[in-house]
Design a protein around this nucleic acid. Structure first.
Lengths: 348, 348
DNA sequence: CCGCTTCACGCAAACGATTGCGTAATGAGG
DNA sequence: CCTCATTACGCAATCGTTTGCGTGAAGCGG
């Protein structure tokens, strides 16, 4: 039933040469040490027999599997699929396969899945975490496995990271709101144990001061999750605090959608009464009314870039000195997307 | 720099036994052929040294890699991530890793990626295609690679498939609409080269006849893609045809959203003037107004089921006769989700 | 005390590809 | 005609595990 795979030995027997000769003939880098006739003869019979190299066997010998691991919190989170396609767009044409694992942001799972990847001898790992603390990936890096992190950095390590320019996004958004006459701007922050939640709040505080906004502590509320329910809850709390505001800069799109809902429940319309902004520009956002003004994160490009960096690390690891060193830090630009959820401040 | 991995040989040297003994001690199925003391001694030093089995080497010997391939058209299509989590929920606890590839529904890519999977010796493949015709996966199946298809079946083959009960979904939806007094119901069909597009249209025709609806050919229009723009276009065409209708059953959610938009552009409100229904119940749907009445496909369960079937195939392949034969056909139930886009027929 | 079985472990050959090294054969130069 | 370099390929070890088979020792019954 199970057809046996064609191996180098089969080709060698067919052509009448040694398997090592076949191996060399099939390797473009080595085939020029052989007689051209032999090479063509071998190659012809190779694909007439339908030969496919066994990467398992090659991997055992060479310690390279042409497989990389990608660790993400949860593939059903809409921000990750574009990242994965970006990674794939770089790696797949080079013959790499990617093993994707979902950590659910649980340390125990992360450890287990890291082993799943290492046991399979992946050539490198792209780690798109959201938690601020997860030490186990550093172990892998210390053991010599090429690692790149995405969306966050590991402090005090030499692990290259690719992040988005969150601060530029916050700045652009605040400038946009100020341009519309808003002065009292609230921040609906994300969970502070997540890197984006923390980074964006820090950026908000910094830029708000820079731009000389009235920074009232009551205007900063934290959500405990990045979802609509928490957005609604936080917006309601914000109103209950009694602090005046005419706009809310939310740490992500889902919080913003929930906030708009919460405001509506209290009789406040967006954008007529309050302007609300999101972050990420997730898919399907343009179908939801009011169409959200947000900061577009280039997820696809982030994936591409992370893959590029990883390739450089792998090249360095294998001694293939290409000259191009892997950059420790890559900060990707973000883009302001102005839609319908922001309007001129009614109070001004 | 690169820390050498601990191998069986290292453990053997440490304990003072042969590597084969170590191999057996570490295999729960074989460890009872050894002296208990030796087994514990070996296991203790194994994890004191931090031993991790090299699956590459084991795979070369055993032809099992504990890795499965998953082929999908496009991970950024929101229906696939839940499927993948479903697959993972079954396979990951058993120690399997999954290599996910995106075919973009291109035959050439599919062929290439199939080789990527086979070269890495995957133990099985789950193939979640949408195209009606893609022969290359059958080659793999014929070569003895366990294959399960999801969302579609390959005719005239022994390849097990897992599909959703599209017909029950269409029937439930039509009965719902009829219950609301609708009689002239249009069908906005999906692309007919895609399995769901074709299956749902066939079901619509069959059930409409069953339920004695006025089946006007002008009431069936086909979209060339599953997106909002085509939904809008098709709805506009439907109106232009002059055929009367009070409801539209759409072949998927995105078409329905586009259709509602197209109707609105012509001054027709949903559900006041026309009821519109979707299919799939994709994520974020409940955030879009009007909240769409739709048929929920259990994507997660579909993934789980496909993985279960694949495991049975793999068990059969390896001679591990567990008694449970892999079913050729699995039809999963669907669920009617009634929201706000359907209302009592105004004409009745 | 001998011969048998049983037990517990070692030996070595796979698995398929890669690669350093060895070595025939060829050619050229003196 | 001999020497030596070069070319073109073969030999065999290697990667880490698995596994059929062999074997020494222990145990046991007669």
């Amino acid at each position: 039933m199970v057809k046996k795979r064609v191996t180098l030995k089969d080709i060698a027997a067919e052509v009448g040469v040694h398997v090592s000769t076949v191996s060399r003939a099939l390797d473009p880098a080595l085939s020029d040490t052989l007689t051209p006739e032999v090479v063509t003869k071998i190659r012809d019979t190779a694909d007439s027999l339908g030969y496919r190299p066994n990467r398992i066997a090659a991997g055992l010998r060479t310690n390279r599997t042409m497989t990389v691991g990608v660790m993400i919190p949860d593939i059903t989170n809409v921000i990750f699929p574009p990242i994965l396609r970006g990674i794939e767009s770089v790696l797949e044409p080079l013959g790499y396969a990617t093993i994707i694992v979902n950590t659910d942001s649980e340390a125990e799972r992360e450890n287990r899945l890291l082993n799943v990847l290492r046991d399979r001898g992946v050539d490198g790992i792209i780690h798109a975490a959201v938690l601020l603390s997860d030490p186990c990936i550093t172990h892998a890096a210390e053991d010599g496995v090429p690692v790149v992190t995405l969306n966050r950095m590991v402090e005090n390590s030499r692990i290259p990271y690719v992040i988005n320019d969150e601060e530029a996004g916050v700045r652009g958004m605040l400038q946009h709101l100020i341009g519309l006459g808003h002065r009292r701007i609230a921040h609906l922050a994300g969970p502070q144990h997540l890197s984006t939640g923390q980074l964006r709040q820090a950026a908000f505080r910094k830029v708000a001061e820079e731009l000389a906004l009235d920074l009232d502590e009551r205007l900063i509320v934290e959500a405990s999750r990045f979802d609509e329910a928490e957005g609604r809850r936080a917006a309601t709390d914000l109103l209950a605090s009694g602090a005046r505001f005419t706009a809310i800069l939310c740490a992500n799109d889902r919080l913003a959608l929930g906030a708009i809902d919460g405001l509506a429940a209290q009789g406040l319309a967006c954008p007529a009464d309050v302007s609300v902004t999101g972050f990420n520009d997730m898919s399907f956002l343009e179908l939801i009314r009011p169409r959200l003004t947000t900061v577009r994160i280039q997820q696809y490009d982030a994936g591409r870039t992370a893959a590029d960096v990883l390739l450089k690390l792998i090249a360095a690891e294998t001694g293939t000195e290409t000259g191009a060193e892997a950059p420790l830090e890559t900060i990707l630009p973000v883009e302001l997307v102005i839609r319908d959820s922001t309007a001129r401040c009614a109070d001004s």
